[in-house]
Amino acid sequence: MIEFYPHIKQFHIFLALLSGSIFALRGAFVLTGARWPMMLPVKWLSYAVDTALLTAALMLLTILPWTVFGNGWLLMKVALIVVYVVLGVLAMRSNRTRRARIVCYALALLTFGMIYGIARAHHPLGALLSLLG
């Protein structure tokens, strides 16, 4: 299975960027009052991409040695993914004030950026590592 690792990793990266882009677009349009981002076909596309992303992530986890959890970057990434999902849900819910939804949307995008930086740097500080070091 290790021979498929580079392909699965590239697919995972593609899906992560696609998922973040879909969220950014949907969120921006929802916050401007558009209704189409909440329609079922658009939501299903988002769910399909996120399901494939999770599947690729789990495949990578089965390939990698368990020592990868020893340095903390992957655990930080997973914890921030939970934060990103919660903020994303809060940003898309219409029962919140517009200001609260904008704040949640901005924080979700910031969290996505942190996740991306951690994944690229393979370090819990992510992009901050280059600023501090």
Rank of each mutant, 00 (worst) to 15 (best):
R101M: 07
G20E: 01
V49E: 03
L40R: 15
F11N: 07
M39S: 15
L74G: 00
G126V: 04
A91I: 01
A56Y: 03
S130N: 12
G72D: 05
M114P: 00
V103T: 14
M114C: 12
L90T: 06
T55L: 15
A56C: 11
H7L: 14
V30D: 09
I102P: 00
L61R: 01
R99K: 14
V85H: 03
L64R: 05
L40M: 14
F69E: 00
P6H: 05
S94M: 10
A24N: 05
A16C: 01
V42I: 15
V89Y: 14
V82G: 13
L80D: 03
G117W: 02
I81Y: 05
L107P: 02
L17G: 08
F14A: 14
G126I: 03
L129V: 08
F11Q: 06
R96E: 10
E3R: 12
W73D: 01
P65H: 11
R26M: 10
L109V: 10
L61E: 04
V83L: 12
I115R: 03
C104Y: 07
M1C: 09
L17F: 13
A52P: 01
F14W: 11
V86F: 07
V86H: 06
A121E: 11
L64M: 11
R96D: 03
A121S: 11
L17P: 01
G33I: 03
P37M: 07
V68D: 00
W44A: 15
V78I: 15
M59R: 07
N71W: 00
L131Q: 13
I13E: 01
L110D: 07
M76F: 04
A108E: 07
P124D: 06
P6L: 09
G20W: 07
A56Q: 02
W44V: 15
P124V: 06
M76L: 08
V68E: 00
